[in-house]
Amino acid sequence: MSFDPQILAAYLPELWKGLRVTLWLFLAIMGLCTPIALAIALARISGRPWLAWAAATYVNVIRSIPLLVILFFTFYGLPVAGIYVSPFTAAMIGLTVCTSAYLAEDLRAGLMAIPRGQYEAAAAMGLPPGRFVARVLIPQALPVMCAPYFTRAIVSLKATSIASMVAVGELTSESMAALTETYRAAEFLGFAAVSYLVISSLLALLQAAVQRAVRLP
């Protein structure tokens, strides 16, 4: 099997466009998922039965449905309900809905690692819940949350490839289009694989830096 760099170079503009779409999709998902997942995780540990029940139901329902089904639902189902969005937006909504359920559980595990004594000290001091979350709970949970958060981010990055199934011209989609035209699998799938590897590696480096920054003294 030969590797032809020239054919890869010829398709580089399309591949680069696909890579940019992948990056935007990934950043949009994580940007939306992080606050949503944190809110769900806090709701689950809030001690308010209805809030905890609603959050648990969301997590249990969403994580029981395959990502592809959710993506098809947002792509084909939303227009049925009279909501017309671009394929990119449909994919972004579907991936956000799905990833936020998983990420909520990752973050909840971090929050639950904080000893009960911290909650009791804050209660005895009369700290308002918002201040307790911002000043005590999250700073202490961050070091615990860091590894699962970045692992989830890497999983989400790779999950963006499923957006190719709903007509989003992202990296996998553009690589497959080039492959279909040229029958050169090694060049285009290789490019896609190396691109995912590079971004994942950058995320791993970012994880190490963040872990150092949020480490408790």
Binding site: G117, Q118, E120, A124, G126, L127, P139, Q140
Partner: peptide, 27 residues
């Protein structure tokens, strides 16, 4: 009401992410 009552615990329960001064200033 709880601000009228100070409580000290067996296991201290200081906030480990804050200095001694910040712990005292927090409430």
């Amino acid at each position: 009401q709880r601000t009228e009552i100070g409580m000290v615990f067996q296991h201290f329960n200081l906030f480990p992410n804050m200095t001694a001064l910040d712990n005292v200033c927090e409430a």
